[in-house]
Simulated assay, not measured.
Amino acid sequence: MITVIAKTNVNDANYDRYSSLIGQLVVASQAEQGNVSYEHYENASIPNSFVIIEQWKDRQALNAHIEADHFKVYWQEVTQLCINEPTIQMFEDSDEISYE
């Protein structure tokens, strides 16, 4: 499994457009083959700061997501709405730690 954590900050003036874009992205991404989980959160203590936590069955599923039209539309537009470039971290199964 692959886990991706993407963080972004948007300008106040772009909040409504971002909310619309992310809502569409989440619904479409959750329906993709190979998606395990796709969640979006707003940071309660930092205004207009957001995080997406997504899990994919494998690299092939993640690559298909990146090539999907809904992701391309989101990415093209979100980069124009952000205060700074989104940060993205990716973890593969081998990076997971078990506490058992």
Rank of each mutant, 00 (worst) to 15 (best):
V27G: 04
S45I: 07
T3W: 02
S94T: 09
I66Q: 14
S29W: 01
H65Y: 15
H40C: 14
I2N: 06
E85P: 13
D12W: 14
A31R: 11
A28R: 08
C82K: 08
N84I: 07
E32C: 00
W56L: 00
Q30I: 03
A28H: 07
V10Q: 13
N11Q: 15
D12E: 13
E32Y: 05
D93V: 07
I52N: 13
R17Q: 04
E67R: 13
T8Y: 11
F71Q: 12
D69S: 07
K57M: 01
K7G: 09
G23S: 01
T79Y: 10
Y38R: 04
W75N: 15
D12S: 12
M1F: 01
H70Y: 12
M90W: 11
E77H: 04
S98E: 08
Q30P: 07
Y18A: 08
V78C: 06
E96H: 11
E67F: 03
S19W: 07
Q33I: 03
E54N: 07
I46P: 04
I88L: 13
K57G: 02
Q76G: 10
Y18F: 15
D69Y: 12
P86E: 14
R17V: 02
I46T: 11
L62A: 01
W56K: 04
I46Q: 10
H65D: 08
A31P: 06
L81K: 07
E100P: 10
C82V: 01
I52M: 11
Y18H: 14
I83C: 08
R17Y: 05
E54G: 14
V51F: 02
N43A: 15
W56A: 01
Y38C: 05
V51G: 03
E85W: 09
A28L: 05
I53T: 13
N63S: 12
I83R: 12
L25A: 11
D69V: 02
D12P: 15
N14W: 03
V4C: 00
G23K: 01
E54V: 07
E100A: 15
I97R: 15
I5F: 13
S29M: 04
Y99T: 12
S37P: 04
H40L: 07
Y41C: 09
Y38G: 01
L25G: 10
N84W: 06
I97K: 12
E54C: 10
E32S: 03
E77F: 03
E96R: 14
V78T: 00
I97E: 09
E39F: 08
D69N: 03
N43L: 05
L25R: 13
I52W: 10
D93P: 00
F91T: 01
I53F: 08
S98A: 11
V36S: 05
D93A: 11
T87W: 09
H65Q: 14
H65M: 05
I97H: 10
D69W: 08
S20Y: 15
Q76A: 06
M90V: 13
Y18T: 03
A28G: 06
W75F: 09
E67W: 02
M90P: 02
V4L: 05
L62W: 06
N48D: 12
L81P: 00
T79G: 09
Y18R: 10
P47E: 14
A68R: 03
P86Q: 08
P86K: 07
A13I: 13
Q89H: 06
E96I: 07
N9S: 10
L62G: 02
I97G: 08
L81R: 08
V4R: 08
N11V: 05
D93G: 15
F50M: 05
N63V: 11
S37A: 06
Q55Y: 02
L21T: 00
E96F: 15
Y38D: 00
E92A: 11
